[in-house]
Design a protein around this nucleic acid. Structure first.
Length: 108
DNA sequence: TTAATGACCTCCG
DNA sequence: TCGGAGGCCATTA
């Protein structure tokens, strides 16, 4: 599997600027598969072995909630990484989500 | 090949 | 306005 939907997702996630976040649906939509939002999340499941490492901590659901934090080595790591980049996280939710939101479709 | 899974999104009550 | 249930697509076993 050289090229697949996953590769597309990885590319977009790696393009996310530091201190910015995006949603799975936005990525899926940017790839032309707005209904395949679940695939984006599924791709992240494989992102653990993807190289270079994927900044999955910059990707959250459309609610701005860190749903995938449990998939990290440690749930708190995701929040730490976000705060380390200047993203404020409160109650497992990204503060000013719509403000820090980064639309991949605009970059692509 | 068929069936099941998933870090989601949208709609309806 | 808030909560719950269903549906979509690609990948893996």
């Amino acid at each position: 599997m050289e090229q697949s939907f996953y590769e597309q997702v990885y590319e977009v996630v790696r393009l996310i600027p530091k201190g910015r976040v995006t949603s799975y649906g936005a990525i899926a939509k940017a790839l032309g598969a707005g209904k395949s939002s679940r695939l984006v999340g599924y791709a992240m499941n494989n992102a653990h072995d993807a190289l270079p490492p994927i900044p999955a901590h910059r990707v959250v659901n459309h609610k701005g909630l860190l749903t995938g934090k449990f998939h990290f080595p440690t749930p708190e790591l995701m929040q730490e990484l976000l705060e380390n980049e200047g993203v404020i996280v409160d109650q497992d939710k990204v503060k000013d989500f719509k403000t820090l939101f980064w639309d991949p479709a605009e970059e692509l």
